[in-house]
Nucleic acid binder design. Sequence first.
DNA 1: TAGATTGTTAATCGATTAACAATC
DNA 2: TAGATTGTTAATCGATTAACAATC
Lengths: 212, 212
Amino acid sequence: MEERGISQAVISRLPRYYRYLGDLKSEGVERISSQELSRIMHITASQIRQDFNNFGGFGQQGYGYNTNYLYDEIGKILGLDKQHDMILIGAGKLGQALMNHMNLKNRGFSFRGAFDIDPSLNDREIAGVRIYPMEQMRDFISENNIDIAVLTVPKAAAIEITQVLSETPIRAIWNFAHVDLTVPDRIQVESVHLQDSLMKLSYSIRCNEEKN
Amino acid sequence: MEERGISQAVISRLPRYYRYLGDLKSEGVERISSQELSRIMHITASQIRQDFNNFGGFGQQGYGYNTNYLYDEIGKILGLDKQHDMILIGAGKLGQALMNHMNLKNRGFSFRGAFDIDPSLNDREIAGVRIYPMEQMRDFISENNIDIAVLTVPKAAAIEITQVLSETPIRAIWNFAHVDLTVPDRIQVESVHLQDSLMKLSYSIRCNEEKN
DNA sequence: TAGATTGTTAATCGATTAACAATC
DNA sequence: TAGATTGTTAATCGATTAACAATC
């Protein structure tokens, strides 16, 4: 599994492959050719083969790909075979929604604790996860070997908290604040900019109506 | 403002330009050159100029760009000068979070109603928006000229509801379900796949730790 | 063996970057 | 006018698609 400089475009497609293969698997489909997958996913068979071959050959000539095997291999590439311990920072509605969704659905990812500046939330539990005062975050990360911090706080708070996180052994930040974060190289950041997404939708609407 | 076949790459960058220009504007910066913006946003000045010139010239040689003007123009391109009436479908935690966030923050976008299959939620209000029974959705869309449906329901429900939405005059779906939706051409879809985003983060973590 | 389908190289297409003439 | 910076063309780079030899 050689992975020198895989392009961002390829990586972005992996979760989608994983999803479709999971569906096929649960439908009992044992093997799939790049051509069939192409038809289902609406991308070219050529691209599918190129994408998979970035990570080595998963298929067999004349046969295609074994659904289960391919599913598992992509899972491994995505690091889904490993346990990820997470904390939530900012226990508002969005944060609570993520704890409900992600704790159940994606095995491998689990919230170990949540933190909020609002003292009235302290010691409460959401989806079986306890909410602690913000001051305890730093120590909690070290003591519980937390990998991922999920940031669901306003912009200004996100910048401040990122400063603090930069000095902890955290490995990644899943950022929902409407700001681009600056972190040391050893910390990975993935941002979900909901506003940006809605604006793209607004753009599509405008373009579509101008076609009249 | 000529816009034939603007690439998806350019469109994806527009909301980020808009965000940075908004920040500059509120800092009182009246003009900005592509070079300065390049330094702040960490993209090339060349790309910035190319991007803007897809929509016509917004700058002035020897001067740069007027921050306010550029901000407004990008806003217009993104359709932010227009009112967007939305409904929420699925009034769970995630949906509630979106109503709280988006109703206040992004002017131009406002929720007119929410719908849920859970009868216990009916007639309740969240962020000043009333929750109606699902059966009333269809009529509500027509009667209130709803543009955007925000889908925060599980996968299976999302597919069913999309069928129904396809027969209404809705113009866009903002999809949070973990599935790719199929709709008529006149309906725009923008999906936020949170699971995919988290998987990409997991991939980055794995790659980063393998560098040791 | 013949048919199918991968893995991989080569061709094409598109997006990014560089360069510079136009012009404020 | 001289300096600065855009708008735009040309060059480069990377990603996608096509083609086909390898092989199960």
